[in-house]
Design a binder for these strands. Structure first.
Length: 624
DNA sequence: GCAAGGTC
């Protein structure tokens, strides 16, 4: 009998795609008992040495199999002081709804010589792989464990992954295990502490859960931080000089090199000197080609940011819609950090698929007729998924209105990536007037290229400048002083918040939208519309509770050395660095868990000791 | 009734 090999992917869609490639398209599908999504695919495949021709069962899990929780006697909120959760025993169990999936793996492992793990090649994927391994070993302790390393589901790539397996990376799996334990202990301890303490202080908090999480709190911190900057803003008056010239029937405005100053007398004096000089001298006339770069291949974070901005959908809605489009097979996997296309992907074929479209079909044809360019490469690669792109064309009549918007964006972005940059001719003119320098810039757009399909970018020709010659003198038509006021920053918008979270390592591409939704659900922030029509944006404004929490925690640690407020992203960043140390093998999981718990325990003890600060902040903001 | 991370 041929040897049997069990393959397990992270999700059903990957299991199916891999089975299709390995089997050459002919496989048998079997449902499993107790779960409607997971299927077993059976076929033969030659893995090469040392396995040879094998009969394969390809199946999947659905994300993590297990969850970590406190032992039963610690689950009740009154069962122990919240601080005890830093040490309380925890146990890892297969989630209730995943029991049939785990059982399927144990059963299939029983008759298998080897297990090939096909989870995503990222940290979480390594941990999920370890969960799968544990189940397989429980079914068959002698099973040999291998890991397929693949970063997309292109055919040749998948075949190579099957024939060149590697080992599971225990370090990465351990790093995730550490994160899971820390998030649980710290989240539960602080949540219980602050909920129980604050509920008693203010009537409106009576029935509320006031949660703390290492991601949701820094997210709240960003919103509050901006809010306070807006509130505390004091406008300042400034003055500047503007110079205007009328020539050849055109008006040219020259901008001051110093932009503006906050000293009126000084500006007046500078203008006087200009007027005394009477004539301005052209010191530079530069004509140079300018270009506006086509966008980078699309990542999740970018989809959420651009989507919020141009499609007027919040990031969670965008992700839901993108997932629906993915499940229906219209776009690629929407959770990716990668902004570079793998050479193995046949991009032109994907462009051709868009030919039938009424809006951008002709544009796609023009690309294939010679205008195609290889996309730019960004600097991110998660080694698991390609940038988000359309996989086939779909008629607009098949989509609801949100799906239409998101699909259109993904397609236009993809076609833009495969286009040439926009090209133009720029003119920079610099003049010396008295002691001061001024400049005027002109732009003529010569080739729109990607702008024709990527309607979200704007790049317009400016008014054309009249001719100037270097060294020539002219008398400006007008030279004035003008007054202005600095304006307050505006409240944080969702795309800005996602940008901040991304830059500070708060959450992952898949979870950022959830953290924002969480702080809305907890009533730490609310969303207010600003403006109307096309310029309408949604702004995030902290509630009184949100402000009170941040101010309270800032006060708790104020004046203490080395204690960083929980509302800031630094503690989370620190945790991230320690996880990297586990991955590098320089620290063990236990060391990191102990160290990080010590760090958070210190803040916890301060918080308990100075809980009055937190209570006072809540009274201050919520008792009126 | 707590977290964050996978995925449906």
């Amino acid at each position: 009998m041929a040897r049997k090999i069990l393959c397990v992917a992270e999700k059903p869609a990957i299991a199916r795609a891999v089975a299709t490639h390995l089997s050459g398209g002919s496989f048998q599908t079997h449902a499993i008992r107790g779960n409607q999504y997971v299927k077993n695919y059976e076929f033969d495949f030659n893995f090469g040495e040392p396995w040879g021709n094998c009969s394969v069962t390809m199946t999947s899990v659905i994300g993590h199999l297990t969850g970590l929780d406190f032992d039963r006697q610690y689950k009740g909120w009154m069962s122990c002081p919240p601080g005890a959760l830093f040490e309380a025993p925890v146990q890892e169990d297969v989630d209730k709804d995943k029991l049939p999936i785990a059982e399927n793996i144990r059963n299939q492992a029983r008759y298998s010589k080897a297990l090939f793990i096909w989870t995503d090649c990222d940290r979480e994927g390594e941990h999920i792989g370890a969960e799968v391994r544990n189940q397989a070993k429980a079914g068959n302790s002698r099973i040999e464990v291998k890991r397929a390393r693949f970063s997309n589901t292109e055919r040749a790539h998948v075949l190579r992954a099957a024939r060149e397996p590697v080992e599971l990376d225990e370090f990465q799996a351990n790093a995730v295990a550490a994160r899971i334990e820390l998030d649980l202990r710290i989240g539960a301890a602080f949540t219980r502490l602050q909920t129980l303490q604050l509920q008693a202080v203010v009537a409106v908090l009576k029935e509320k859960v006031i949660s703390y999480g290492s991601c949701q709190f820094p997210t709240l911190g960003f919103v509050v931080d901006r809010y306070l900057r807006v509130q505390n803003f004091k406008p300042e008056t400034f003055w500047g000089i503007k110079v205007m010239l009328q020539r050849e029937g055109k008006k040219v405005n020259f901008l001051w090199k110093r932009v503006h100053l906050f000293d009126r007398a000084a500006v007046t004096m500078m203008l006087e000197r200009c007027l005394i000089a009477k004539q301005a001298k052209v010191t530079e006339v530069n004509q140079k080609p300018k270009s506006k770069w086509r966008p980078l291949p699309l990542t999740t974070v970018d989809l959420q940011m651009m989507g919020s901005r141009f499609l007027r959908l919040d990031s969670q809605t965008i992700m839901k819609v993108a997932e629906a489009l993915y499940t229906k097979g219209y776009i690629s996997y929407p959770r990716t950090e990668t902004d570079q296309f793998d050479k193995a992907i046949d991009l032109k074929k994907l462009v051709e698929k868009q030919f039938p479209d009424g809006q951008w079909g002709q544009y796609a044809k023009d690309l294939i007729d010679g205008k195609f360019r290889t996309p730019r490469s960004g600097r991110h690669n998660d080694k698991a998924h390609p940038p988000i792109h359309p996989v086939c064309w779909v008629s607009p009549s098949q989509l609801n209105s949100n799906e239409k918007k998101v699909y259109e964006f993904v397609v236009r972005r993809f076609l833009a990536c495969c286009s040439d940059d926009a090209k133009g001719q720029g003119t920079d003119i610099e003049i010396q007037y008295g002691e001061e320098k001024f400049h005027a810039n002109g732009l003529i757009v010569l080739e729109r290229n990607y702008l024709d399909v990527y309607v979200y970018d704007k790049w317009e020709s400016s008014q054309q400048l009249p001719n100037f010659e270097r060294g020539e003198l002219f008398e400006p038509t007008e030279a004035n002083i003008y007054e202005g006021k600095t304006t307050a920053p505006s409240y944080l918008t969702e795309p800005e918040l996602i940008g901040l979270m991304d830059a500070n390592g708060i959450g992952t591409d898949a979870t950022m939208a959830e953290h924002i939704a969480k702080i809305k659900e907890r009533e730490y922030v609310v969303v207010h519309p600003r403006g109307s029509g096309r310029s309408k944006v949604e702004e995030l404004i902290p509630t009184r509770l949100g402000i009170a929490l941040v101010e309270g925690y800032d006060n708790v640690v104020a004046g203490l050395p080395n204690s960083i407020s929980l509302s800031k992203p630094f503690l989370r960043k620190e945790m991230e660095l320690r996880m990297l140390e586990i991955c590098a093998g320089s620290k063990t999981r236990q060391e990191v868990v102990q160290q990080s718990l010590d760090m958070y325990r210190e803040v916890f003890i301060h918080t308990q000791r100075r809980i009055e600060m937190l209570k006072a902040a809540c009274r201050k903001y919520l008792n009126e």
